[in-house]
Design a protein around this nucleic acid. Sequence first.
DNA 1: GGTTCATATGACTGTCAAGGAATACGGGGG
DNA 2: CCCCCGTATTCCTTGACAGTCATATGAACC
Lengths: 102, 102
Amino acid sequence: MTVDAFAVLAEPSRRRILERLRHAESSVGDLVDALGMSQPAVSKHLRVLREAGFVTVRTAAQQRIYRIDVRPLRAVDDWLGPYRRLWADHLDALERHLDRQE
Amino acid sequence: MTVDAFAVLAEPSRRRILERLRHAESSVGDLVDALGMSQPAVSKHLRVLREAGFVTVRTAAQQRIYRIDVRPLRAVDDWLGPYRRLWADHLDALERHLDRQE
DNA sequence: GGTTCATATGACTGTCAAGGAATACGGGGG
DNA sequence: CCCCCGTATTCCTTGACAGTCATATGAACC
């Protein structure tokens, strides 16, 4: 996970790949068909995702089956933690405000 | 918010700015001192953050006071939603597994 | 063992964003 | 009114990255 998770997610195509892998693991060819982009492009994005820990690979005959790994996403989720508190506090303040209105 | 929130967050310096603004609103000069980078660099990052909705500006005399706005972060949080389910399910499965072990 | 299928990789090109230096802008104080 | 302070903007250079095309790898099948 030496790579920056946010930088990896900055690429829309990579998010689309993750979106697809969220529902089911897929071979490279499946992704090529589903996303309508060239095979080398897909393979390169998969490499980036793999090196950042977002996906794992398994070899099945002549295919490589990619599967999502949620750990980097949990890291992003953790990063959001303190900020989440921010809008929770705002909601609390809003509620108090509305209570006072009554 | 026409800009991609993930692309904005991909820049470490911008995350550092947000981290700082999470605790307190700041003038540009404050951020320059705190982050140890050039004033133009900070101003440019603030512009990106502003155009993506991450921060708002207020003018106080000759200073511009920047304040965090959590809405784009909530969008990121929402994006994570479906994936969060993924590892919640995994945790459930683990619990069931451990229960069966007893 | 050579061919075919699925995928990875390399070389190359175009694009875009970040950083620095210099400069413009705009309000405030003398 | 001129100057100064804080900040924004412009120009320029440089580096990173995505996409394409072509080719390499490697397993399976005949």
